Amino acid sequence: MNIIVLNSRGHQSRALRLPRHLPGLLLAVLFVIPAMVGVGAYYAMYHWGDPVLDQRMTARWQDELASQRGALDELNRRTDEELRALTIRLADMQARLMRIDALGERLVDIAGIPSDEFDFSAPAAVGGPELPEERSLAYTAPSFTQALTDLAVTLDRREEQLSILERLMDNRRIAEKAELSGRPIVRGWLSSRFGQRTDPFSGRLTMHRGVDFAAKDGSDVVATGAGVVTFAGQRWGYGNLVEVNHGNGVATRYAHMKEVLVSAGDIVRAGDVIAVVGSTGRSTGPHVHYEVLRNGRQVDPTPYIVRARR
């Protein structure tokens, strides 16, 4: 192989003679030898590397996958159990709420309270302004746990309503028991009414501020309403006297008793025996002088006497 070399002026030239095997040698240097080096390196790494490391890593990964699969199965099982438990709890709370609503509506009907004050069938009225920072919040569906929490709050509200209703009914029962009704004696007759009359001792026209019930000496005198005994003893003109405070500015007096059976501070109910009929004080014979006071002033007891006891 000859190579002709010309100088820059083109007047002189030289011929170089190269060996015939030089092109093949250059081709081998540029392509064959790098290819052989790469194949050898791959072969060396494949055969002389540590295949045990790859097997261990594969086995470890498989164990981790199996462990994660088992944990996921256990989580699914526990989730199903908790969901069943929550479902049972929800059903129980709903049943309780239905019973409470039915009982509340029945009590409201019995008590005669307006239904718009304690409407157990209507949802609770709630509200409130929307805060500006809450308008940008993304909507999130209520969770099952939140539904249970809301139902528990409703149950608490219903129980509070029933508690208030119970207190109202208790107050009403107390008021009914304290309400005056009937006569202060078991047997006897009305011997003198409330109002103007001729005084049996002076003969002058005077104001009689109570009613008199003639009865057998030693018979029972009963309270006409529930209350607290505020006086039990002797008082001029009344003889042996019992005074009972019934609340709300109402009081009763029972005078001319032969014997007093209660003491100041005692709590009496309607119909309780508080004294014995006699003729002490300014009296002409065995009887009960009965007064009703409202805010400290005597009023006519007749409307309370004729009122039918509930």
Rank of each mutant, 00 (worst) to 15 (best):
Pro129Asp: 12
Leu30Gln: 13
Pro286Lys: 10
Met93Pro: 00
Ala41Leu: 15
Arg89Trp: 04
Glu166Gly: 13
Ile100Asn: 10
Gly285Lys: 09
Gln12Ala: 15
Gly271Lys: 10
Glu117Gln: 15
Val299Thr: 07
Ala232Phe: 04
Pro142Lys: 12
Thr79Gly: 10
Trp61Cys: 04
Gly112Ile: 00
Glu259Pro: 14
Val250Cys: 06
Ala141Ile: 01
Ser8Ile: 00
Thr252Arg: 03
Ser283Trp: 02
Ala35Leu: 15
Glu134Trp: 05
Trp189Cys: 02
Gly104Gln: 08
Ala125Thr: 07
Leu293Gln: 09
Thr79Ser: 14
Val288Met: 00
Ala215His: 06
Glu105Ala: 15
Leu293His: 14
Thr145Ser: 13
Glu291Asp: 03
Ser67Pro: 03
Arg307Pro: 07
Ala138Glu: 09
Pro132Val: 07
Gly38His: 14
Gly233Tyr: 00
Met257Pro: 08
Leu83Phe: 12
Leu261Arg: 15
Pro142Asp: 06
Asn248Glu: 13
Arg197Asn: 01
Asp50His: 13
Gly278Leu: 00
Arg89Lys: 11
Pro301Leu: 01
Phe118Trp: 04
Arg77Val: 03
Gly203Thr: 01
Leu103Cys: 04
Thr206Val: 15
Leu26Pro: 02
Gly225Gln: 09
Glu166Pro: 06
Glu259Phe: 09
His21Trp: 14
Ile274Met: 04
Ile4Leu: 10
Leu151Phe: 00
Thr230Gln: 11
Leu53Tyr: 10
Leu26Met: 08
Arg209Val: 02
Thr154Phe: 07
Trp236Pro: 06
His21Arg: 12
Leu6Met: 11
Arg197His: 02
Gly281Pro: 10
Ala232Ile: 01
Leu293Ala: 01
Val277Pro: 07
Pro19Val: 06
Arg17Pro: 06
Glu176Cys: 05
Asp170Ala: 13
Leu83Ser: 15
Ser181Asn: 02
Asn248Asp: 15
Ala178Cys: 14
Ala44Ser: 09
Gly278His: 08
Asn248Phe: 05
Ala232Gly: 05
Asn76Gly: 09
Gly227Ser: 02
Glu176Gly: 09
Ile113Thr: 01
Val186Cys: 01
Ser202Gly: 03
Ala59Leu: 10
Ala264Asn: 06
Gly127Phe: 07
Arg84Cys: 02
Val276Met: 11
Ala35Ile: 12
Pro19Ala: 11
Leu155Trp: 04
Asn2Leu: 14
Arg187Met: 05
Gln68Phe: 05
Val211Cys: 05
Gly218Val: 02
Ala141His: 11
Leu137Asp: 09
Ile100Thr: 08
Ala270Glu: 08
Asp109Tyr: 01
Trp189Thr: 14
Pro19Arg: 12
Trp236Ile: 12
Gln68Leu: 13
Trp48Pro: 07
Val277Glu: 00
Ala102Pro: 06
Gly24Lys: 12
Ser263Ala: 11
Asp217Val: 15
Pro114Ser: 01
Arg253Pro: 00
Gly239Gln: 08
Glu166Lys: 15
Val186His: 00
Thr280Lys: 04
Ala111Glu: 00
Tyr42Arg: 15
Leu26Ile: 07
Val228Ser: 09
Pro184Tyr: 02
Phe213Pro: 03
Asn295Pro: 05
Leu162Gln: 09
Gly265Leu: 03
Gly203Tyr: 05
Gln298Thr: 13
Leu22Lys: 07
Gln196Thr: 13
Phe213Met: 07
Glu179Ala: 15
Arg99Met: 06
Arg157Glu: 03
Val186Met: 12
Leu27Ser: 13
Val32Trp: 11
Gln55Gly: 10
